[in-house]
Amino acid sequence: MTPTDELLFRLADDEYVIAERYTEWQIYAPTIESDLALANIAQDEFGHARLWYDLLEERGYEEKNLLWERAPEDFRHSTLCELAFEEGDWADPVVRSYLYDTAERLRLEALVDSSEPAIASRVGKVLSEEGYHREHAQSWLERLSEGESRERVQAALDRLFPHALSLFEPGENEREIVSEGLRTESLFDLREEWFEITIPYLESLGLSVPEPEEVERPEVRGRDGSHTADWFDLHESFTSTYHELGFDQPTRLRGEGA
């Protein structure tokens, strides 16, 4: 895989998988507004996934091999995106979105001046649609961190933080991605910046953030194709209808080539 393709798969798979998980909250979120907000955030992330997968198609991949017929171990998303939610645990999507969207902004900002024009020309639009995701997560985090629900937030943070570190797990082409200017910052530096933003903020809410160096990391990292069991279940579930219907090609209600 080329460095550009690796970068694009990480972007697209993260967005696709986290959106797929968010949709599970539809009709179950605690208020009608939060239900609509999370559904809308999911739609944004699907849109962004689409935009990066489009670019992979332009680079020679086919839609069916990008999603429907790609083996689950070929997906390169962070394990943070794939974890199943515990029933009714609203603190989880709130914490997850905060950790993820803060990392995403840093990552996108490091792509604004990408040496690959096709990437640079898409970043602005994506960034402009991201700000509200963080606002939504922070507004909920601040409310949930007051009173007895703080324990739930803390539990979600303890569970998700080790997986969030895999957002910054380098892939095999990390060195080239930086030296070729595809991304203008290394994952190591992005992770440092993410610590500088997330740790003081979470602590200001009265939460205790695991010490990054002392965190027991899950064996699976996502970026190398190793994933939790939750991912294999999710993959099975979102590809099952496609396989049941047995089309030769992914079908569309109204094809773009029509």
Binding site: Q43, D44, G47, H48, K125, V126, E256
Partner: peptide, 13 residues
């Protein structure tokens, strides 16, 4: 107008 535009295929077509 929006990356997640649900009418994308329809409009392009």
């Amino acid at each position: 107008t929006y990356t997640g535009c649900p009418a994308r295929s329809m409009l392009k077509g």
